[in-house]
Design a protein around this nucleic acid. Sequence first.
RNA 1: GGAGAGGUGGCCGAGUGGUCGAAGGCGCUCCCCUGCUAAGGGAGUAUAGGCAAUCCCUAUCGAGGGUUCGAAUCCCUCCCUCUCCGCCA
Length: 429
Amino acid sequence: MLDPRALRRDPELIAKALSKRGNAFDLTSYRELETTRHDLQTELENLQHERNEISKAIGQAKGDGLDIEPLKLSVREIGFRLDVVKQEFAKVRDELSAFLLSIPNVPHESVPAGEDEDDNLVLYERGEIPSFNFEAKDHVNLAPSFLDIELAAKISGSRFSVLRGPLAKLQRSLTQFMLDVHVEQHGYEEVYVPYIVNASSMTATGQLPKFAHDAFQVQHTEPMYLVPTAEVPVTNFVRDEILAADELPMKFVAHTPCFRSEAGSYGKDTRGIFRQHQFEKVELVHVASPDDSWDAFEELLGNAEAILKMLELPYRASVLCGGDLGFAAAKTVDLEVWLPSQKRYREISSVSNFLDFQARRAQARFRRRAGERPELVHTLNGSGLAVGRALIALMENYQNGDGSFCIPDVLRDYMGGVDSLKLVAPLSD
RNA sequence: GGAGAGGUGGCCGAGUGGUCGAAGGCGCUCCCCUGCUAAGGGAGUAUAGGCAAUCCCUAUCGAGGGUUCGAAUCCCUCCCUCUCCGCCA
């Protein structure tokens, strides 16, 4: 959520800043709502004040043994009027808050203008794109019977997968490796978190109310949601908390499955496990002081890149343009890994600084010094990395032409010493 | 699933329908005293909103309704936590 005070002070400025996203900010209805809210609130508070005064007087009169009936009568009209105004105010307040919750974050000044991913700005490329003297197979053809989409379709439906044997182990090894690096080398605390969250958590990080259709909802005593990313449960650690300055920065790493409905992506990336309703991700989350969040951003990006470097996968980094920027983010840098079968880079990590946008929704604050007013923290996160996509990238970039692919050095211990896999032969069971 | 207890400020914990935003304690901040690995004394210390505003006003005692001139306090619904029993990975 944007700062309501900043918005009130200069709505034009915010509208202009949001236009970088191609987001039309409705100044007219905002002004109308805000004016109505202000008028109603003033009237409401005045009425409440009057009522409080008289009620206080009644209390005193009663104590003094005086007749309180005339006073009661005088407060009656106020009560009626109050009921009406209270209702009107509640309605406008709810409308305004729904309006505010649906406004995306203001893009940082370094974010390029643009409509979609074609307008993203490539920062740099790293690693060496492999040159094969054979036709590169894609990940499906490299492990046909170990990656069973049909079986998953029977069990669940489209966009699910079953991984078998060594392929399942390889995905687990990747996960383990990433967690270990972030904990042992980058100073993160590993956390294990719920995979189902409540509506308040989803609202705090920005998935709700606007993007309900992207999430899987679970019906319980109240509506709950399968986590679309560990960002949701982990960032919500600090919801409604007032932290001490020395508790910052907080750095968490969590491995979770992620669930996305992928509504609106029909026909897109339908082959293999590239875009699934359920996928594994290792996520990094920072809770930072506002002074340090851009440093934290660089650190996070470096931490995610470190995994790609250690796996020796070719990748590039791009700043997302305004139009491609996620709802809550002020700035995002995507890491994209080279996929030989597609002969292009594809997203494997997304690193974002949300500034105080999520923190305001979450009321996540800290105190610089004891006795001072609490301030909103800054939140950031980044994939470190998307495990399923890392699996694809590894298989494809390390393929040898005979259907086998090598296991990168850093994973060999996790794989029990295995240095290559050949999974093109049918599964024998 | 059954039975019970409870949700109050950074924490613990009082609270009779009326001057309670809330006693007391702890913690924290500042000051004083003392000069020595301690203690004592004083003052302050919730959040959000309105306003140019220190002041002032409004709201908030798990959430939402209700009763009442007035609700932390009474009633209803929901959520959560804890204890015991049952079941269970």
